[in-house]
Design a binder for these strands. Structure first.
Lengths: 157, 157
DNA sequence: ACTGAAAAGGTGGACGC
DNA sequence: GCGTCCACCTTTTCAGT
């Protein structure tokens, strides 16, 4: 993992459909070299996949909420996490420090559907109280964080 | 936006590098038809982009936290959101209902860096108390939610 | 590890239905 | 709005360095 790999990663986070030729141009390598490097990054698990981002409103998922989940001692965290993964509406699931065991992000079509979803959450064994924070607007989301892979400070390009 | 578009969207969320030929095969259309449909989905803002997903640990961002931000009345929400957007470590930013104005997700290299990041957050005008929840493990994240774009129930394929 | 060339296949238009 | 055709470009492999 050198400086060139980091540049390739940053470029692919910006545009996951960039061609190897494009990437090669921006890092100063041939397309085949880039192809080889990207293959290694994928194989070693650094790049985990490529995904289209979709506007949630356009696909009828206009309601987002963050739900803190207080545990009961009737199930293990692993079982709870698995059950949470079984719900389609649960987009992300974090095990957290504090008095909640998990925080999940759910996306549903309406507040009616949110209510039903919370019902399903609370019916999971090991789930006690839930604490729901409704998202009013998403200012930005999933932004590439390039803190760890900046351009070198004193680069000579 | 018909059933075919929804299938294309689902496929591109799974694999953002799928070729038009691949997509055409899986929806039963020619590559050019798919090309045309995808172009319209991109132009109309349904598909907002394509991005490589990267394992945060592999790029030195092993610490994730959710930070609730209590507002003061010394700045507008818009100004606060803009300032939050100016911090590289802030990956997502949600305006929320409740006594917090925003919840943000930050990603940093170490807990030391988290402390410095929280300091930067609190120095933003309009930001009062912060309430930080450290993520212990990410069980899953950004999963495609196909609740709104399921296969039709009585499809004849 | 990178290059360059060559085969295979995908892209992105125009055109007709 | 979809399919066919086709020139062009990209991907992918491989021998050479």
């Amino acid at each position: 993992m050198d400086h060139v790999d980091r540049k390739i990663i940053a470029a692919l986070r910006e545009n996951g459909r960039a061609t190897y030729a494009d990437l090669g141009r921006s890092v100063g390598l041939s397309a085949s070299s880039v192809h080889e490097r990207v293959g290694k990054l994928e194989a070693s698990g650094v790049i985990t996949g490529y995904h289209a981002m979709v506007d949630p409103n356009s696909v009828g998922l206009g309601v987002t909420a963050l739900v803190g989940i207080h545990p009961t001692d009737t199930a293990t965290d692993e079982d709870v996490a698995d059950a949470l993964g079984g719900l389609d509406e649960v987009e992300s699931c974090y095990a957290v420090a504090g008095d909640e065991a998990f925080v999940v992000k759910v996306r549903v079509s309406t507040v009616d559907e949110l209510e039903r979803c919370l019902g399903r959450l609370r019916r999971i064994p090991g789930v006690g109280r839930t604490n729901t924070t409704v998202v009013l607007s998403t200012r930005f989301e999933g932004r590439p964080n390039n803190a760890g892979l900046d351009e070198e400070p004193a680069g000579k390009a």
